[in-house]
Design a protein around this nucleic acid. Structure first.
Length: 464
DNA sequence: GGAACTCGCCAC
DNA sequence: AAACGTGGCGAGTTCC
């Protein structure tokens, strides 16, 4: 049995990490309490208004009639029973326990305008109850102190709770604005966020060393996601700066490339790209289907090229998946196979950072966990180092949180330039110096909000 | 009346 | 043959 030589270092990383996180927890994040209370009140009113609207619909009255009392409109069980057993609608999908699903996708598929109110009610309740309410409940003297845990996650990542600082809405503009408007720096300071760009792809490359992938990472004039978008959408030209192409690139990046890396297969990827990103229907496609691109509908574009349905598109993606793993990234594929075999033989997989995952792992787990864990450890190492530098030099700037591949800081304006410079140095230079197995360049992106402005107002920051 | 569960949904 | 990973949390439900 091999004993991994870095076990002591792995212990040290978590020991030092725990102390650095404790200091961030103690520091905390300022909450605008007056705003949070006011906003909760506004949401109460809006939710009641939407509930009343919903309760005046024929659909609701029918529901009320069949159960002979007031149904709970927030109960998935009751809604599922009414829609699929009473009304006999056909659910697009079922939940794990087998009942008809009532999530957003399933409700939208029924195409009933009344249900859109229900979806909006859910969203506002989520914002109010999961986030604003948690902030006001957990705050002490106007600061929340989220916990950052290093002992709970089987991949040796971190988790956060009370409140969870790692799942604050970002993509949905409306939710993002409402919630991040409540979070502020200390008076006279600025919120800053420093992210590792594409850290999991880079760390995966340190394991599998696929030359094509390393080439993509090393050469900034190439772009893996653009190349895959060109192939999937059968394009000769591709400029990711053009709006239409940039949407296709996102569709391919989030609907094909990343799911493939995690171990998904062409069937799900085809649905991801076509239905979730390009508004194409399941089954047969029409000329008017899909979003409009350069004055043409995507449905028409594909039909002219012989792809006339989701089934055709699925076959297309199947071929591309084959090409992806057998021609484009064959070394990456062999690494996955090798690690699965090694796990079956030994009963564990080791991370490049000296941790060992054992117990029951699926085939996908054996390649996903080491990447996910070690990528986070890059962030953790940088967090510890920055914390040490800032304390040694008695800076006023504080680290206040971390979201797997990013660090959130509460910065004194006079220290901003210095913080940015040192952060660049630590994350992209000192870390690869310390961990020789990092054989690809690392990059970060920085964002900053103005003095006394909330987290919703982050803007790109470039070192001058 | 609390534990354990399901479901839905937020993040990376 | 089968089919994407890691978490936290609120509300509803079921079980004891």
């Amino acid at each position: 049995m091999n004993i991994h030589p870095n076990t002591e270092q792995a212990y040290r990383l978590f020991h030092d990490g725990t102390l650095a996180f404790a200091r961030a927890e103690q520091q905390g994040i300022r909450v605008d309490m007056a705003y949070a209370e006011r906003k909760k009140q506004e949401l109460d009113d809006e939710i009641i208004r939407l509930e009343n609207t919903f309760k005046q619909t024929k659909l609701y009255r029918h529901w009320q009639h069949v159960v002979k009392k007031d149904p709970n409109i927030h109960s998935g069980t009751q809604l599922s029973h009414f829609l699929y057993n009473v009304k006999k609608f056909k659910p697009v999908k079922t939940t794990v326990s087998g009942q008809g699903a009532t999530d957003e996708e399933a409700l939208m598929d029924l195409n009933l305008p009344e249900l859109k109110d229900l979806i909006q009610i859910r969203k506002l309740k989520k914002v109010r109850d999961t986030y604003l309410e948690a902030f006001t409940r957990e705050q002490v003297d106007g600061y929340v102190h989220p916990s950052f845990n290093l002992h709970l996650v089987k991949t040796f990542r971190s988790s956060s709770d009370r409140p969870n600082f790692q799942n604050i809405p970002k993509r949905d503009k409306e939710s993002m604005q409402i919630i991040r408007d409540a979070l502020y720096p200390r008076p006279g300071h600025q919120l800053m966020e420093i992210d590792y760009s594409g850290i999991e792809v880079r760390i995966a490359a340190c394991y599998h060393k696929d030359p094509t992938m390393i080439q993509y990472i090393n050469d900034p004039t190439t772009d893996m996601h653009s190349d895959m978008a060109k192939q999937i959408f059968m394009l000769d030209e591709f400029d990711k700066c053009v709006k239409e192409y940039s949407h296709l690139r996102s569709a391919v990046k989030n609907g094909f490339v990343f799911p493939q890396f995690y171990g998904d297969y062409y069937g799900n990827c085809a649905v991801n790209i076509a239905c979730e990103w390009c508004q194409l229907p399941t089954g047969k496609w029409n000329k008017e289907d899909g979003f409009s691109m350069f004055g043409d509908h995507l449905g028409n574009y594909f039909i002219r090229r012989g792809i006339k349905s989701l089934e055709d598109f699925t076959q297309h993606i199947k071929h591309i998946e084959q090409d992806f793993w057998y021609n484009r990234f064959p070394i990456y594929r062999r690494w996955k196979e090798h690690w699965w075999k090694q796990y079956q033989k030994n009963g564990y997989v080791d991370l490049l950072t000296g941790f060992r995952c054992s117990g029951i792992l699926s085939k996908n787990d054996t390649s996903n966990w080491p990447v996910q864990g070690a990528a986070f450890h890059c962030l953790l190492w940088s967090f510890i180092e920055l914390d040490a530098i800032m304390r040694r030099n008695k800076w006023d700037t504080r680290l206040i949180g971390q979201i797997h591949d990013s660090i959130v800081l509460d910065v004194h304006p006079n220290e901003l330039e210095m913080v940015a410079k040192i952060a660049q140095q630590v994350t992209c230079h000192d870390l690869p110096q310390a961990w020789k197995w990092i054989n690809v360049p690392l990059e970060i992106e920085m964002e900053i909000a103005d003095v006394d402005r909330p987290w919703s107002e982050l803007k790109n920051y470039v070192i001058t």
